[in-house]
């Protein structure tokens, strides 16, 4: 009769270390370099301004298939804007972005560039997945409908087939029991994991993460990062804007620092953390690692 409250089985996997390990440990955890595929995102001389505010100045970067790139930098450095430009949520003012085989936002006609119409851009966006800082789940439908909406309503795929896949995705992000919940009933970390599943449901070739853990309570950060690390192990190409240096160490092939709309440092994580060349990087690292 008189049992105390039983501990619910703990659904979370062991949390990842986020703190900076000492240099010796760092060397020990360095991963074998994985084989990367052909370039899948090519960013060339991209310019973007909001009015007088020049947010991106001549940014160029190439990301290969299967590569995980972490972009960091202080707020206003243009990192989120770059991500939004890649996914065509912003239109660029100059330069070229090729992603997943598309010339993003444009079509080439007789050597000239023609801006694409909304529906054509939408078609390109289907090959890229995006995860937002504020999750942006669709609050009016259940978790499983959030994941199924685009494949069923846009790609017109059979509902039963999509539902099976959606359930697999939910299991993959560790939320199999939440399929009928509404987003409002989930914690931030759970919502973000559903948002990752929603993006994956379109089978994107590249996943973009825009500060995916910045709006989360500290105890929920690792559950989201774990899913992302998992995803990177499965060979997903990922561009991640984040300040989670633990994630950068665990999963990134390359860490990029942006400052004032430019890329000022671009290096493998070991070199980025131990031997940065740019003064901006040294300052940035000293600020985020020394607390």
């Amino acid at each position: 009769m008189t049992q105390g409250i039983q501990n619910a089985p703990h659904p979370e996997r062991p949390a990842m270390t986020i703190d900076a390990p000492p240099p010796a440990a760092r060397a020990a955890t360095s991963r074998p370099t994985k084989a990367l595929g052909a370039p899948i995102v090519l960013i060339e001389n991209v310019q973007k301004a909001f009015g007088d505010n020049h947010v991106l100045r001549d940014v160029s970067m190439t990301i290969r298939q299967g590569e995980v790139v972490v972009i960091c930098g202080r707020s206003g450095s243009g990192k989120s804007t770059l991500l939004r430009c890649i996914d065509q949520l912003e239109t660029i003012d100059g330069g070229t972005i090729r992603a997943a085989g598309h010339l993003m936002g444009f079509r080439e006609k007789n050597g000239k560039r023609v801006a694409l119409r909304d529906a054509e851009i939408a078609r390109q966006q289907r090959d890229l997945g995006m995860v937002f800082q504020n999750f942006n789940l669709f609050p009016h439908v259940s978790v499983i409908e959030n994941i199924m909406m685009a494949p069923v309503r846009i790609l017109k795929r059979p509902r039963a087939e999509v539902k099976a896949e959606a359930r697999e995705l939910l299991a993959r992000v560790g939320l199999p029991e939440k399929e009928n919940a509404y987003p409002r009933q989930l914690s931030g970390g759970q919502q973000q994991r559903v948002a990752i599943a929603r993006a994956l449901a379109m089978k994107p070739q590249v996943m973009l993460f825009d500060e995916p853990t910045s709006a989360l309570d500290p105890e929920m950060i690792s559950e989201v990062l774990d899913v992302m690390v998992d995803l990177s192990h499965q060979g997903m190409t990922m561009i991640v804007v984040t300040h989670e240096m633990g994630f950068a160490r665990a999963a990134a092939d390359r860490v990029v620092l942006m400052h004032g709309g430019e890329i000022v440092e671009e290096a493998p994580p070991e070199q980025f953390f131990t031997n940065p060349r740019s003064e901006h990087t040294k300052l940035f690292l000293s600020k985020i690692l020394s607390h």
Partner: peptide, 26 residues
């Protein structure tokens, strides 16, 4: 919320689909 439009675009919805599936229901 503006983020809803971003999210709907990011999964590849056209303007019509965004309106019909995401914006108007909310």
């Amino acid at each position: 919320d503006k983020g809803q439009n971003d999210a709907a675009r990011s999964v590849g919805m056209t303007w019509r689909e965004r309106m019909y599936l995401v914006i108007l229901p909310q």
